[in-house]
Amino acid sequence: MSVVLALTIGALYAVGTYALFDRILSRIIIGLALLGHGSVLMLLFAGGPPGRPPFVESTVPANEYADPLPQAMALTAIVITFGVLVFLLAVSYRSWTLTHDDEVEDDREDARLDSPKRTVHRVEYELSVLGDDLEQR
């Protein structure tokens, strides 16, 4: 049982990390969700082997109950990662309505410093900064 759980955690981390390296935003978010599941399972796994009774029964000695602390922590972690992921989804929706593009752009600033000869980038950058300045007022 434990081996299966350990392998599942490993697989979740691996797939999550792989998806994180994608350029498509929605895949990054899915990757984060998988990573979140992996880390929550890890937290749960830290509480000892599965199969122990969680509730008080007269027949079970006191030290054989499942440790409730990791479960409480896992619950907290689930709530937090869920909340942040939903916020991230909202932000990426906002990004989509603004740009109609789900891809992570190249950094404009990097492009400017990287290739000063490529005037297209430069002009684009200057225009966008001008736009920023105007909008900032």
């Binding site: 984060l32 990573l35 992996g38 796994f45 990662t81 991230l88 990004s95």
Partner: peptide, 23 residues
């Protein structure tokens, strides 16, 4: 978005290390 993703990754890493520390 960069900021949120980076922070979230480090938070997940934090949960992972908490799990390992508790174990």
């Amino acid at each position: 978005m960069t900021y949120i993703v980076i922070s979230l990754v480090s938070s997940l890493l934090f949960i992972t290390s908490l799990g390992l520390i508790y174990a």
